[in-house]
């Protein structure tokens, strides 16, 4: 698999369960060491210099897990420290106010709603202004309002020049926020283009035509290329 994410771009990674989306992110994040290949964050070789690479990326994992007995103010202070960003208590409170959690600074992470947890998680992923942000299913489990808000936040990050790589199961999300989308399955890159470009490129593919109900959608392209069988 070979991918390039451009500056100021939201790049979506689509694939059924077990396709390798999280594994791909884990390799970039340094959680797993790939057997071969290379990963570069700007000029930094992530395999040779993982610390410098990690300093240049912000990560939101699929299941967000912070120390359950710390308050969200303490969690923000911890991660700011880990990224070398000195923040005063007032600055931390301002940051939490910017995501509408000014009333919740003393709450434990587990006491927040799903949407609030995702906002804290995204705040921590970007606390050090990384050029690259990796988001693993950032809106999974959110209600439509919370999802829209998160999309707005992700787009604002993109507008400041950051590159964003996100994985998603939602075609709606891919079409709404991603400039380009890659469909992968079983660790292989099947296709990559803009959402509209993917539909145009594959609309006459017999596998896609077979599953389409009327006008071909991104859903049809996805199912046509990855198959209709259920995945665990």
């Amino acid at each position: 698999m070979s991918l390039r994410i451009n500056e100021g771009e939201i790049f979506g990674l689509l694939g059924p369960n077990g396709a390798g989306k999280t594994s791909t992110l884990s390799a970039i994040e340094g959680l797993v060491r790939p057997d071969s290949g290379s990963i570069r964050i700007g000029e930094i070789d992530a395999r040779e210099n993982p610390t410098a690479a990690k300093a240049r990326m912000g990560v939101q994992l699929q299941s967000t897990s912070f120390q359950s007995d710390l308050t969200i103010r303490e969690i923000v202070r911890l991660y700011a420290g880990l990224y070398g960003v000195p923040l005063t208590r007032a600055e931390i409170d301002d940051l939490l106010a910017s995501i509408h959690l000014e009333e919740d600074v003393s709450k434990r992470f587990s006491q927040l709603s799903g949407g609030q947890q995702k906002r804290v998680s995204l705040l921590i992923a970007t606390i050090h202004n990384p050029p690259l942000v990796l988001l693993d299913e950032p809106t999974a489990g959110l209600d439509p309002q919370a999802r829209r808000q998160l999309w707005d936040r992700i787009e604002r990050l993109r507008d400041t020049g950051r590159s964003i790589l996100l994985t998603t199961h939602s075609m709606e999300e891919a079409q709404a926020v991603c400039q380009r989308v890659a469909i992968i399955d079983r660790g292989k890159l099947l296709t990559v283009d803009t959402p509209a470009g993917l539909i145009e490129k594959h609309k006459d593919d017999p596998r896609v035509r077979k599953v389409a109900h009327g006008q071909v959608t991104l859903d049809d392209v996805f199912i046509g290329l990855t198959g209709s069988e259920l995945r665990d």
Partner: peptide
Amino acid sequence: MRSPTAAPSARVPTLSGILTA
């Protein structure tokens, strides 16, 4: 960083800062 609208940066934290946190 003070807000997500700031331009990207890439400072590498010090070991003492990491351990303190």
